Computed example of a mutant assay.
Amino acid sequence: MKLIVIAPCLITPFYVYRGPKEKEYMASLEIRKILLNLNDDWQILAYPCPEFILLKWPRPPMSKEVMEHLGMKKVVEDVADFIGRVISEEKPEAVIFVGVKGSPTCGVFHTTSSDPKEYPYQKVREFFYLSKSERLSNYKDVIKGGKLKVVKGRGLLFDEIFKRFQEVSETYWVEIDKDNIKDGIDKFRSLINALTNEPKN
């Protein structure tokens, strides 16, 4: 058995903090096309969204530092424990971890960073009560006001996962950039094809 461990918002876009835009719908559609073509040797683990667990939905954009300040460390440890137990019990031949570029929790190679002291925390409650159209109009103001920047590095959950599994053989890492999905989708598909066609020992 081979396993895909994937950020849930890549399968259903409605977990996205502000609600989905067209790019989230498209990314989800392309991911589902790949998953629908898997053979019986593959299983999928869409782990619980750590951001939803901590902050519910909808929520304003945040950096990894802001989320850590709000208590995300315990949540990502719990989610990583779940992922780890599945892997230890099922013993897959290969694992592909799939995350999201820029995510404060699920970024694989890029995350969002800021000084948590400069974040407008009152926006967390205000944002919850906005309509979707209001959220889509206002979320960039929170990014600007909180000085949120996409930087190289892992999100909080993927940092925890990487620490636990970086030295495990046959683990692979894919980052989906929702602003430019082709590269990530092509890599994901190619990796699945290569592992599917790999001769069994």
Results as ranks from 00 to 15, higher is better:
Phe165Gln: 07
Gly155Leu: 11
Lys187Arg: 13
Val168His: 12
Arg18Val: 08
Leu36Tyr: 06
Glu167Asp: 15
Glu170Phe: 13
Val124Arg: 01
Lys73Pro: 00
Val86His: 05
Leu148Pro: 07
Asn180Tyr: 06
Val66Leu: 05
Asp78Phe: 07
Lys101Gly: 04
Val75Asn: 03
Asp115Trp: 07
Asn39Gln: 10
Lys140Cys: 07
Cys9Tyr: 01
Ile143Met: 14
Gly84Ile: 04
Lys21Glu: 15
Gly184Ala: 08
Lys152Glu: 15
Leu195Trp: 03
Glu90Gln: 05
Val100Glu: 06
Arg85Met: 09
Val100Met: 08
Gly145Gln: 15
Tyr15His: 14
Ser131Cys: 13
Ile181Arg: 09
Thr112Glu: 08
Asn37Lys: 14
Val150Phe: 14
Lys117Pro: 00
Glu160Gln: 15
Ile53Ala: 05
Lys144Ile: 15
Met1Lys: 08
Ile31Gln: 05
Tyr17Leu: 02
Glu90Lys: 07
Trp57Asp: 01
Asn37Cys: 09
Asp141Gly: 02
Ile161Ala: 11
Phe165Cys: 05
Asn201Gly: 08
Tyr172Gly: 10
Glu126Val: 11
Val174Asp: 08
Pro20Asp: 11
Glu77Asn: 10
Ser131Leu: 10
Val142Cys: 12
Ala80Gln: 00
Glu65Pro: 07
His69Thr: 12
Gly71Asn: 10
Val86Thr: 10
Glu170His: 15
Pro92Ala: 03
Asn197Ile: 01
Val76Ile: 13
Phe162Gln: 10
Val100Ala: 00
Thr111Ile: 00
Leu195Cys: 08
Gly99Tyr: 01
Val5Leu: 01
Val5His: 06
Ser131Arg: 14
Phe97Met: 06
Ser103Pro: 03
Leu35Val: 11
Asn201Trp: 08
Leu10Ala: 12
Phe162Asn: 13
Ile181Leu: 14
Gly155Pro: 03
Pro104Phe: 01
Lys74Glu: 14
Ile87Ser: 07
Val76Gln: 06
Val150Thr: 15
Glu134Lys: 15
Asn197Thr: 01
Thr112Ser: 13
Ser114Leu: 01
Leu38Ala: 04
Ile96Ser: 00
Glu167Val: 10
Asp186Lys: 09
Lys147Asp: 02
Ile181Tyr: 05
Glu198Phe: 00
Met72Arg: 04
Lys182Trp: 07
Tyr17Ser: 09
Thr105Gln: 01
Leu29Gly: 03
Lys152Pro: 13
Lys64Met: 08
Asn37Gly: 13
Asn138Val: 12
Arg85Glu: 11
Ile143His: 05
